[in-house]
């Protein structure tokens, strides 16, 4: 039997070892009392039992605001993100699935160079979790979308390497790992618990559409905090000395400006924008048609100031998802 179990007492050693693979980041509690992914100065800062961070790990791949092009003296050059190896520890399965989705968007043909650079520098160490009231998922599960996954048990973690990087980590940690008679039972590698919806559902006569459209304050929290929302705005700013920079910044489909073009707006009302959000989130667009991008993390439900939960618009709830409308 392979030695794949990390006892709790060895966790801090294991974390120190991870520092050999890059700058170590993980879930911490900020001074304001907000869970966030941040550099782990000390193992004692780690919040192993965190529910969810306010901002998902997408910030490591797609920062809120970044320069993507620089123009000077008649020529453009692409911005190159500062690249340092980062190990992100303690990412829950839903957030891992979310990053796998972002990879499909940004690393498909004509890969986004800023994203690709950051992604190549990121090592993901997953961690099992216990769903709370906000989660949309039916129960604990594992995700293969990482380099290494830690399944928490009573007195330790069962490690599963999911990539060459993950194998390198387990090899380096061999002295810390032990063989246990009874391996911690890994739950099934389930996928997203929110199943793809029929695109026609966005035109349903459900009265909640209008109610939500009236209540939405267009604050942007749902997409800022969503691990798979990647819509962005591009703006160009000239400088005093000539030249200019092109900036990419997170956008939200519920903002009036999102569908605005010269001469009009594709989605002038909030109701149209909600339908559009539903379409993108739960039905998918080309080339990801039929692929839901909701990974069930529950952030939109927790952080919406007016309690909008688009899933309430599903008329027929899938039977296997273990939840009630």
């Amino acid at each position: 039997m392979a030695k794949t179990t990390l006892k709790n007492i060895h966790l801090s050693h294991f974390l120190e070892l991870l520092r050999l693979f890059g700058e170590l980041h993980g879930p911490v509690l900020s001074d304001q009392g907000v869970f966030s992914f941040a550099p782990l100065a000390s193992a004692s800062d780690l919040q192993l039992n965190y529910s969810r961070t306010q901002i998902p790990p997408k910030k490591y791949l797609l920062p809120f605001r970044e320069e993507i092009l620089h123009y000077q003296k008649g020529a453009y050059r692409q911005a190159v993100p500062y690249g340092s190896e980062t190990v992100l520890f303690g990412v829950h399965p839903c957030d891992l699935d979310a990053m796998a989705y972002l990879d499909r968007v940004f690393l498909a043909e004509a890969a986004d160079s800023c994203y690709a650079t950051r992604r190549a520098n990121l090592t993901l160490v997953g961690l099992s979790c216990r769903p709370d009231d906000f989660c949309f998922c039916s129960g604990p599960r594992e995700s293969a979308a990482c380099d290494l996954f830690l399944q928490a048990g009573e007195d330790g973690f069962s490690l599963t390497a999911r990539s060459a990087k993950g194998e390198a980590i387990t090899a380096a940690a061999a002295d810390l790992l032990v063989e246990t008679e009874k391996e911690i039972e890994p739950p099934a590698c389930g996928s997203c618990n929110v199943l793809p919806q029929d695109p026609q559902l966005r035109f349903s006569a459900h009265p909640l559409w209008v109610k939500f459209a009236e209540a939405c304050v267009s604050c942007g929290a749902c997409s800022v905090c969503c691990p798979t929302c990647y819509c962005f705005d591009l703006r160009e700013y000239p400088s005093l000395s000539g030249g200019a920079e092109r900036v990419r910044e997170w956008d939200n489909c519920l903002f009036v400006t999102h569908g605005e073009v010269a001469g009009g707006n594709f989605r002038a009302t909030r109701l149209e924008r909600l339908r559009y959000r539903f379409l993108h989130k739960y039905c998918g667009f080309t080339p990801l048609t039929g692929i839901t991008s909701c990974v069930g993390c529950g952030r939109c439900k927790e952080f919406c100031p007016v309690g909008i939960d688009l899933r309430e618009l599903f008329q027929d709830l899938p039977l296997d998802c273990g939840r009630t409308p």
């Binding site: 907000v34 961070t53 304050v217 942007g220 800022v224």
Partner: peptide
């Protein structure tokens, strides 16, 4: 966008 967008992105309470 409104203040909330930047506020959430800064991971404020």
């Amino acid at each position: 966008y409104p203040v909330c967008t930047e506020c959430r992105s800064r991971e404020n309470l």
